[in-house]
Design a protein around this nucleic acid. Structure first.
Lengths: 299, 299
DNA sequence: TAAAAATACTCCATAGGTATTTTAT
DNA sequence: ATAAAATACCTATGGAGTATTTTTA
């Protein structure tokens, strides 16, 4: 049984097709003319097709040869790209990064992070999916996502889960005119006690447990249980309800950039509560794109 | 200097990636396990990239390996198509056929020929271009076209030009009511003498020399010089002018199928003149698609 | 007749085989 | 304990080299 067709033969063919001269083609291929002639002849025999018209004075492609060349050039150049593809993939410059995030991150942190990363790694496709913290932790364990952006819970994370804090976000009061004394509006600062008994608009705990816990702790510090007057599961909705005068809320300071009309964002006097937005990923993850992303975050 | 990456290594990689088991993969590749392990290891070294996670009990693709596989599958399957492409091209089942034709052929013969051929050889692209006979003969000599469809001239063709008659087309009289006696309309036959002196609508000779010569010879047989009352360079125009009552013409019988309103196509009594529509091509042409076309015509 | 492709042969690099060891479950 | 991958060493195919002949513009 005869050995099957080889890429080397195709390279020989393409070089001869370029040069239309076996001697020069052999030079370019760093070989001598006789084995090149043999190689082409064997290719023709294997294919059962004539690729060149040749006399001792001239070499020309047949019509068949021209058609084959057209396709072969593509195959060879695709083949030659494979090493670079493998290396890019290993560097994390090529591939897919599946990233989940809590909705709070989507206002400010996520868009900036993603757009900067895409500029640096344009060949990495980023699959984004909003999800609550617990869903993200499960998805990480499943291998359904490569990384998540959550609000750091007070409880310790599973040892296989790594994390890095992306931002400490102090909570600020979101109030409408009704709950904002003129002095506060002037100073941009508010004493929490002035709104501690105002109706609170907030998430149900399952939708933002760590955030919920931070707010609950703050209320406890002021000797009050957390009483949610109106629940909402979207930050946008909460802000809207505040603007409508239904009550107040405590929101991450990064939300203040949204500058919704009818809502004032006022720093809390004294030690403000805060939430930590952090990234989480699996310790032993085999995901070059994730490593690239982690290194990118450090810069 | 180390030998460069080879398609064989990629096949090894793909098979192991399929089986996730070196032993079974080696079986499928008709080889033994140790050289396969070596091959994969060398591929990884050449690329500088880890493709598999392996223990003695399990083999799994790395993320990088998964990405490489995706691209490599494509390259290998494209490569494996090359022999078939070459053979199809050599059979004339793949490629381009550049075909010119005289306008008279475009009414009936050409469309049928082309549509039948395209059904039989869907991968052959047919580049069609209308041209007069002399332009076609030059284009054939230049190699600008592969074949032409012309009306056979009375003079012999150049010895390097082959030809095959596609159809003998008798000329019929194209007349309006004014030139058609009731008896002729009933019988479908006309005595040429009844229109021999009617105003003739016809091509200038350079636009259809062989057709012109056939008509001129017929007039000579009846002792008259060819006198063109109105020239037109499109068959459609000539028929239109006949319908408008400006005169008569002699047209290939295949035109009769067009069934233009206001025009009668009447066979000529006695020995009718005729034109031969034929295909021409270069004797030594290296064009498998042309050979396929020629064989197709015979069937 | 001269330049270039085709033959004829020789050689060695390396793909693959066999035997064995290592390793992780 | 065992199945499977890794290591060590061997073999031989065939790709490439050298020398020469053939061919046709």
């Amino acid at each position: 049984m005869r050995a099957e067709m080889d890429l080397r033969q195709i390279r020989h063919f393409l070089t001869v097709a370029d040069e239309l001269h076996f001697g020069r083609a052999a030079d370019r291929l760093n070989m001598t003319q006789p084995p090149l002639s043999m190689s082409i002849r064997r290719l023709e025999e294997d294919l059962g097709v004539q690729l060149f018209h040749r006399t001792t004075k001239s070499v020309a492609l047949t019509t068949t040869g021209t058609i084959l060349r057209h396709h072969a050039v593509q195959v060879v150049s695709d083949f030659d790209r494979l090493p670079s593809i493998a290396r890019q993939a290993a560097r994390g410059a090529l591939g897919t990064l599946r990233l989940s995030f809590v909705s709070i991150a989507s206002f400010d942190l996520l868009p900036r992070l993603v757009s900067r990363f895409r500029q640096a790694f344009p060949q990495v496709q980023i699959d984004l999916q909003e999800a609550t913290s617990d869903v993200q932790l499960d998805a990480l364990a499943d291998g359904t996502i490569d990384a998540g952006i959550i609000i750091r819970p007070s409880a310790a994370l599973h040892p296989q889960i790594c994390s890095r804090t992306l931002r400490h976000d102090p909570l600020v009061a979101a109030v409408s005119d009704r709950w904002a004394p003129a002095t506060s509006l002037a100073s941009g600062t508010l004493d929490f006690r002035s709104i501690a008994d105002a109706p609170l608009i907030f998430f149900p705990r399952p939708f933002a447990p760590a955030y919920y816990d931070a707010v609950e702790a703050h209320y406890a510090d002021h000797g009050r249980p957390l009483q949610i007057h109106q629940e909402a599961i979207q930050m946008q909705t909460i802000i809207g309800l505040v603007a409508a005068g239904l009550g107040v809320s405590l929101v991450p300071k990064s939300m203040a950039d949204a500058r919704n009309t009818g809502v004032h964002y006022l720093d809390l006097a004294g030690t403000a509560p805060q939430v930590d937005v952090c990234m989480i990923w699996k310790r032993d993850a085999d995901q070059p794109a994730l490593q690239a992303f982690l290194e990118f975050i450090d810069t």
